[in-house]
Design a protein around this nucleic acid. Structure first.
Lengths: 103, 103
DNA sequence: GCAATAAGTCAGTTTTTTATGACTACCAAA
DNA sequence: TTTGGTAGTCATAAAAAACTGACTTATTGC
């Protein structure tokens, strides 16, 4: 295979990283719901119309890797997992709300 | 062809439209430069490292269709075209700067 | 052990976005 | 009328993002 270079992440624009964290087909809606309270996978799947397991899984992972969400195992009645906003995630709420009000 | 439905634009999240307007590989950088002054196609191509005609063309068209940029024909020495921020575009500068400062 | 609930993963496919290189259209100057 | 600058388009290809349906893993209740 020819050694072709991959997307060299041209981060010349400071806003780009943040925009990338929140953009995509499902991440804005997931983030918005996360600001309301803890998220569960199965609930998201039910509540977000038109979504699907794979895409939500990928989106949640990206939000987690971006440091906006964290996974918590809840050892209760039916053992399950919660996704919560991290401190970093919470710090984005004000600007996210502005985006909402302008959109 | 089977009548398969296309992306039904699930705009349940108010921030989504705005995020989409500004996201992508080149749009953030183009918008940032536009806040500094009028843009010319050939200059963008030179100044944005790693870019290419087709992608810039698509990005400019999307920014234009989103109502953030407008095309102006300049009848001068070498006749050319300028892209300027619209009033709508200018109204996004504050939030864009916040995105930059947080990124 | 067997079924149910929760939270996914995996392989394969389709759709969207981005990239490449050749080509076009307009105007102006020589 | 040929050349040069500016601003693209077009067909095509490659890469990334999103979708589908089958399958997996872990725990609990019977």
């Amino acid at each position: 295979m020819t050694t072709k270079k991959m997307s060299a992440e041209n981060e010349t624009c400071p806003a780009q990283a943040l925009l990338k964290m929140l953009s995509g087909k499902w991440k804005p809606e997931i983030f918005r719901l996360a600001t309301k309270g803890p998220l569960r996978f199965s609930s998201l799947l039910r509540e977000i119309a038109g979504s699907n397991k794979q895409s939500l899984s990928v989106a949640l992972k990206e939000l987690e890797e971006a440091g906006l969400l964290e996974k918590v195992i809840i050892r209760e009645k039916p053992l399950h997992i919660e996704y919560n906003l991290t401190e970093n995630g919470k710090s984005l709420i004000p600007i996210f709300e502005q985006l909402e009000s302008l959109g």
